[in-house]
Design a binder for these strands. Structure first.
Lengths: 216, 216
DNA sequence: GCTATGTTTTGAACATGTTCGAAAATGAGA
DNA sequence: TCTCATTTTCGAACATGTTCAAAACATAGC
């Protein structure tokens, strides 16, 4: 019974510290100390420091969702809708940019509990993929059905890559990432209709399917 | 004078251990012990465990180069030549696949001494990028000059992404990665000539330039 | 051979994530 | 209220990468 309160206390303390100090500087000892509990006790509730980061991920994805969903009402054009999701995503991440390297290197390992593709991240991932499903689903377009079905996963993976670029982006205001996004979307807007050309269609479909299989 | 011998001893011991045990299981204490020196002494020669990994990278790139260069003699077709470089690269990496997650998470942080985009990695990177310069330079093609000049860097980045996919690939014999490569190359073979279409040319050039700027 | 200077080597120390056995608190049933 | 099993809490311990002051060694100049 006390259980739930202690757990929440640890969680909240940890998240506050991650937001303030980032991944590396947030030690489990520090969390425990700030929460007024012992080191061992923190590990009674969370098997790993990274499991605490997982909580942060879910919170951030919820935040993204709450910003993006209303904005999606404003357009039914696929590229515009993608732009909305990507841009609001980057905006949500921005406060973490200074700490991004720490989080990245903890998250990138396939077996890490906070790897976005891993089982432990299902909740956060579904929140995020869902956004891309909304973006594609609510758009008028004339894409082949099989392609349209694979696209949300592919766009979500594109989001991970964009975030990777963003981590490395030291330009002021992350203008480089934003420009990459603009140009990528523009090119996509031109190239996507070409997907109906018989010549391109088959290899593109095969490629897209394979990419959709990344997590497996 | 003794200096050089000790340094080489540490280096060789470390590389052997990385090849055998991977990144995580190779502790600096273990290296020191196997080399018959003290822990502190290892740090006298290499400021960081990762600086030892850097030595491994250079060796692996040299290996890749020595395999790929002769193979490049066999074709002057761009896509084929790219295939040669990519495939021989994956083959060179294969013995490390089991340990790849450890290396990846140490390498991915922008400020890590073994980040492929960082200053410390210049030697290994130049070896690798050079291979793509060879592949593009020695091929007959009819691409706009500015594009052709940016392509090696872009293809090299593509190589990093392919390697990222490869790390996550648990399929037997890495067949998934090889299929992704095949299909990507096929699509590239079809799509690249389209780069001359006036409509696609400008946005593509802008995108390619931006991507070439990743490390900056 | 001896001393002074610079190089190389050592091992103890630190902070970190994590584990674990034991102590303390809790609460259900008598 | 007391007992005892369960849940919760604690803090010492471990292995790791890294730092550092001091010891050991080598050598040049006398």
């Amino acid at each position: 019974m006390k259980s739930e309160r202690t757990r929440a206390l640890i969680r909240d303390t940890a998240l506050a510290s991650f937001r303030e100090r980032g991944y590396d500087e947030t030690t489990v000892r520090l969390i425990a100390h700030e929460a007024g509990i012992s080191l061992g006790n923190a590990y009674y509730y969370f098997p790993t420091k990274n499991h605490l980061v997982q909580e942060l991920y879910v919170e951030v994805q919820r935040e993204h969702r709450s910003v993006a969903v209303p904005l999606l009402e404003t357009s039914d054009e696929l590229i515009e809708r993608l732009g909305i999701v990507y841009r609001s995503g980057l905006a949500t991440l921005e406060p973490f940019h200074a700490f991004a390297p720490g989080f990245l290197s903890a998250a990138v390992s396939p077996r890490s509990p906070i790897n976005p593709l891993g089982d432990d991240s299902t909740e956060a991932r579904e929140l995020s993929v869902g956004l891309f499903r909304d973006a594609v689903g609510g758009a008028r377009h004339s894409l082949p059905d099989d392609l349209a079905r694979s696209l949300p996963e592919v766009f979500w993976l594109g989001y991970l890559l964009l975030a990777l670029f963003w981590v490395y982006d030291s330009s002021p205001g992350r203008e480089r990432t934003l420009r990459l996004l603009d140009r990528g979307l523009k090119l996509l807007g031109i190239a996507l209709p070409l997907a109906r050309l018989p010549l391109l269609r088959k290899p593109l479909r095969e490629l897209v399917e394979l990419i959709g299989e990344v997590r497996a």
